[in-house]
Amino acid sequence: MFKRRLQALGYLEWKKVNINDPQHFRKVVLWLEDQKIRQYDIQDRKDLRNIKSEYWPKAFAKYCKDVQCPVFDNDVDQLEWLIGCAIWLEADNDIKQYSQNIKEMKLKMKQEASVPRLKSKNPLDNLDFENNKFQEGVYCVAKLLRIPRHSNHLVTLKACSKLVQRRFNSECLRNPNSKIVRGKPFPIMNCDPGFQLKKTAVENAAKILALLYIQDIRNLQTKINEVIVRVQNITANPKTDTKLGKVGK
């Protein structure tokens, strides 16, 4: 009885406790008051401390009254209430720490529930990406693809991946001309960019950023157009075959 709760509270002799032994019982009560409940000032705990005294039950009854224990008559029930009270006080002291833990636990449970655990069969998942050999490998691939080296090998890897996805996909390999952007290069470096920066190097960098931004927006716009065309294939009425320059069916 009470063993787990006493263990949780940190009562050293929790294993040996036998509350049917009055001495054990009195020791536990005193320990709870000394360590956890602290209802009295130290000097006022004298009567409780005198666990061998015949007046101890009287002191205990007074103590129960003073801590406003709602249970009467039954020693064991009274002790149970005192242990509960101690646990409550203990938890209240560390309420922040506990609530944080509970949140994390709940979150973890949720994640575990939503993401089914799979044992990875992909050898890449178990790679050590910081390993020297791996880094060397990345720079080796980059050299082959003529991609400049970035101090962070993972950035270099990302660049390699982009290039491979865009230029070495199966469609590109079948028809290399389809994906190579043609057209006349725009002399961006000789054009007025609409902003002026003090250092040429910074200005050139800004121009390059502007170009990259324009490319991003262009790709987005193209995707939007593709969506519109798909939707129009469903919604357009009457159907039009613009290739034939004809209206209607």
Binding site: F186, I188, C191, D192, P193, G194, F195, A210, I214, I217, R218, Q221
Partner: peptide, 14 residues
């Protein structure tokens, strides 16, 4: 509107 203005089409940003 001049180059780089956000309200002009992407193709004419430059």
């Amino acid at each position: 509107f001049p180059p780089h203005h956000p309200l002009i089409p992407v193709d004419y940003q430059l």
